[in-house]
Nucleic acid binder design. Structure first.
Lengths: 337, 337
DNA sequence: CAGTCAAAGGTTTGCGCAATCCAACTTACT
DNA sequence: AGTAAGTTGGATTGCGCAAACCTTTGACTG
């Protein structure tokens, strides 16, 4: 259990800890003979330097903190995977906290990670969180912070997001180009920027193609039952020829409702999702959707963070990256003419 | 950036660091007056104790290491979620490493986490890994270790797994009880214990119900194309009335192949999956499957680990928990008569 | 009123490491 | 031979904290 230290080796060889430290760190001013003896004993005893001691001394932990809303969400795990791909090769460790989309827990996580003296922080802000003092604090004490996927305007820090506006615009345009004219839109949860941006992308596409924006075609999806009630009459009256949903799960429900009404996808109605969740390719028909570069978002965010941490980017310099999405056309939409 | 220490507070108040330490730790022998002054200044300056220093002193980091094969696998994320639910309330932090199912990376992760002086380790061994010296080392140096989901017989340490044998047995029995007699089985990847155990559960069910084991009904799924080639003739000749697949993704392919041949699920053929992945309930028909208590497995493993770490369980005592699965019957199988 | 004791706090030490500053002991050259 | 310049390594310090061990002061006892 007790791990051996440089002092142990020093004692055994009748030298000082300094000498051992220098030998192990390859400083040139140790004679070949002494060095060999030290290295040999270190090897034999399985010496491993104690990072805690180093951290205490150098005020550097080679650790980054990560705050995500939850583990069981494929999107965040792809982001996480991207983050890990970078931190791993750069020799940093990840300490993860989850926020459960709750302000209190998120705030506590921030505090915990700062307490642990992480070298930097990556965070995906939780849904429905609209107070950001905890993130402001990170910036105030000058700990590098990069936000992922979701931003808060108030806090001046670097971030990496995907272009929800553009993604939704392209998806809507695809529907239009494939002949749809009466496109319904199902909104996501209120209070997150993505919801707003995708919605605006949808509207922009209509505008661009000079289609009227019809408020009755836009449905809130806060309650599944609500969705069914609102959507069914629109479908029965054949007012829609396409539905664009805020995410793939909602899209699934939409397909379900459409089929319940006796219509078929995509013959009667096209359906477009968003996010390219794994479930999208297991639905029937397979769902056309917008693929977000989640892995890239994670790796880019981590890469920016580590550049700040390592001093290659001034902390004052605020980088904001907005990654492009990609349409994934499957069977729930017709081919574009 | 520079965080304040007890020494800073001590200097400001003209007392010694010990006094500050004692005041902050609620030791009774500090006068009310001194304590108030110290607490007030600590509060004002936002003092936060440095866990690195404490760890160095007490040889305890309040950190557990976690090794999983990959992030982008829903099952592990549920496990992770379960682990976090325990560590969070017990005040421990999680440092995660991934192995990418590669021995070298897994070994390196073990080394990294040991170097970081984690108080204990949780690990889900990667696929195709059959050398376990790195885990043996953990046990040797007496760092608490609990294996999750997959075990290696050689290493004597606690573990938490699910009962694949029982799960597969029950699933197969369900098929039998709902009238199926010609049950095909699609095997999983070779070299992992789960593959073997589920397969044995399938065979046990046949035996129990005195159905013959027919080798030609068992197909390896190593290649998707292979699966199609092997399965199609069995289907066309109507030799099967049910297929039990090693996991839900394979089950999806099976359904696809069945429908391709012109048969319907579950009318012509029942299909049973395994794992209850999210995709299972988005397939059409919705997939009957075996639900694994992933979250519980994680929380139980974490709970056992922390009990060892905190000395409530002797490290020498080996706990092995085998959690039960649960059948989730959806639309890909008929109702049991 | 000396002696005792407890209250309140100071001093020292060490966790493991490495940077800084020193001190021997060679060589090497005038 | 004497000094300058390496060579090789020791001693000390401090990162932040807390345990172990001392010291001072006043109050209280017999």
């Amino acid at each position: 259990m007790k791990r051996i230290s440089i002092t142990d080796i020093a004692r055994a060889l009748n030298v000082t800890p300094s000498t051992v430290s220098r030998a192990l760190n390859g400083e040139p001013r140790i004679s070949e003979k002494t060095r060999k003896a030290i290295l040999a004993l270190a090897e034999e005893w399985g010496y491993r330097p104690n990072p805690l001691a180093k951290s205490l001394l150098h005020h550097k932990t080679f650790t980054v903190g990560l705050i995500i809303p939850e583990f069981t969400h494929h999107f965040f795990n792809q982001v996480l995977s991207g983050i890990e791909s970078i931190t791993n090769v750069k020799g940093y460790h990840i300490i993860i906290c989850t926020s459960d989309n709750a302000y209190d827990k998120e705030k506590k996580s921030v505090q915990t990670l700062l307490d642990m003296r992480v070298d930097g922080l990556l965070a995906a802000i939780g849904n429905n969180i609209n107070t950001f003092d905890h993130f402001q604090e990170i910036v105030d004490i000058k700990v590098p912070l990069v936000l992922v996927d979701r931003i808060c305007e108030d806090v001046e820090t670097s971030y990496v997001v995907t272009n929800d506006f553009e993604g939704a615009l392209q998806a809507t345009e695809y529907l239009i180009q494939s002949g749809c004219r009466q496109i319904g839109y199902i909104k996501g949860p209120t209070h997150i920027s993505t919801t707003f941006n995708r919605y605006m992308g949808y509207r922009e596409a209509l505008k661009k193609w000079q289609l009227p924006y019809q408020e009755e075609f836009v449905v809130e999806s806060n309650e599944p039952q609500n969705l069914r009630e609102k959507l069914t009459p629109l479908l029965k009256n054949r007012l829609l020829d396409a539905v664009f949903a805020h995410n793939d799960y909602i899209a699934y429900d939409v397909i379900d409702i459409i089929q319940e009404v006796g219509l078929t996808v995509p013959n009667d109605i096209s359906v477009m999702g968003y996010a390219n969740e794994p479930v999208a390719s297991y639905m029937s028909p397979k769902l056309s959707t917008v693929k977000q570069p989640a892995f890239e978002m994670g790796s880019l965010a981590a890469s920016i963070l580590l550049q700040i941490v390592e001093g290659h980017i001034a902390p004052s310099q605020i980088l904001s990256e907005c990654l492009s999405t990609e349409l994934v056309i499957r069977a729930s939409t017709p081919v574009r003419s």
